[in-house]
Amino acid sequence: MTNLVFDIAHLLAGGLVLMSLVMLYQVRLYALLKVFTLQALVLALSVAWQAFAQDAPHLYVTAAVALVFKAIVIPMALHRIIQRLGIHREIETVVGFGPTMLAGIGLVALSLVVMLRVTAGADPMAREDLAFALSVVLLGLLMMVTRRNAVSQVVGFMSLENGLVLAATGAKGMPLVVEFSVAFSILIAFIVIGIFLFRIRERFDTVDMRALDRFRGEQR
């Protein structure tokens, strides 16, 4: 039984990392959004499994929050933004996919090495969870760095936050209020960013960050 619980938690957390890697090579914004939705679903499942495994019913609430906000509200809102901005055909990356994927794999390896070294002696389930969570965070950052479009940077930020939630639920005894406050701060950040996106668009007719840089009169 313990083995099965462990394996399933492992599988779901691994799925989260996999979705992050998949996101790295999405060229279309709609496709990116779909993968993000999928990642949020996997996150909700993972949190729910943690709730079952740790026998912590409040984690079901977290899972529900993740499901409602991350898998439904935010993707729908982003979908509408993309539609209204009319940028669904845009493709943008700074670095090619090959190097990005290699860097992503390197980051996953790095976070595994770091976490397994640092947390020697901790609960094995939490250990694996933390290692995967760090990978998701790093991959989200990598995505923010390698994309130029503001919307895909927002998606990168959101997936980074998924990693944080995974880490928070993997560690036993994280108070509910912390998770809630994280979830809500992310939501508020999302609202603010969304408003800014439209303001940027109004001014510059694009959400490509290069326009902003040009406007600031600086070299790239």
Binding site: V94, L107, L110, S111, V113, V114, R117, V118, L138, L141, L142, M144, V145, R148, M209, L212, D213, R216, E218, R220
Partner: peptide, 22 residues
Amino acid sequence: LTIRRYLTLVFIALVALLLVLA
């Protein structure tokens, strides 16, 4: 620098620190 370059700097610093730790 541009925002993305700042993010890159932060990212590189983070990865470098993690590498040191590893």
